[in-house]
Amino acid sequence: MNKFVSGLGAAWLAALVAAAPASAQDLELAITAPAGAGGGWDSAARSLQEVMMATGNAKSVQVINVPGAGGTVGLAQFVQGADGKSDQLLVGGITMVGAIITNDAPYDLTNVTPIARLTGDPLVVAVPASSPYQTMADLVAGIQKDVEHTIWAGGSAGGADHILAALVTQAAGVDPAKVNYVAYSGGGESLAAMLGGQVTAGVSGYGEWQGQIRSGDLRALAISYPEPIEGIAAQPLKAQGYDIELVNWRGVFAGPNVSDDAKAKLEEAVAKTVASPEWKELINARGWSDYYAPSAEFTDFIASETDRVGSILKSIGLAD
């Protein structure tokens, strides 16, 4: 929807940066958020903008929103516009991996240069408070008994929520193509369906539902993170005996054909930003988890995620 540059925020932060230490790098960056205002990638881009400028790791940062098609519109524009440029970054994540496959997008993440993985949020599997299911084992037994009437609510088709629902169904020993997954826009409407008791279970980013989980309106059965997380009572699926892990990760990329020198400079700026106390404070406030990985590790990670997401999307009939 809205493509605009966050200007006033930038102007305001520029004033802060004026007071930043003299060692400040002279990077003048433009970060593409391949989504509209308010979404996860948009807030990731804007958070990066805020902290990079506040810590003096960049002189100025502009955020450009290019929404569309699970981020693939922004990716295509970025691949064409940022070729060889040392001052362009793109935010992306696991949803983009799925969208590239389901939309048959002309460009994929091998066309861009991974700089760093930034955050990784757990997904939560939850049921309405009135549900008879008390534990993950109850839900899995329910799936085995009647997969058709086990109705899931979550975000858009082929996204991370959908993939997790399919993985849980698969782990229950049922054909994942049979999962009855009802897609809603964003995290909002699926929450209403959960609270209204119209569905059996739901998947969402933990942060989006934590208010309802704390107030007892929803019962969290499991999280998809590999290890337990402090402050979250629900245990990982892995710890409950299901071999599933899925992290809603986000990272930054530079354009194609970036010189080694420019790449190293961007890596350093991002690494320094992520190590700063300001970043730690900010991701805490947003309810995100640090999932930093440097360029080389991130590149391998993307390859394995692409394989994994591709095969599960195939099994639920969204890709061929």
Partner: peptide, 20 residues
């Protein structure tokens, strides 16, 4: 555009700007 429920694209004729 892309159908929200199934991810199927309708009448976009491969134009990325029409996907949404």
């Amino acid at each position: 555009g892309i159908d929200q429920l199934t991810g199927q694209t309708r009448l976009a004729f491969g134009v990325p700007n029409l996907m949404d």
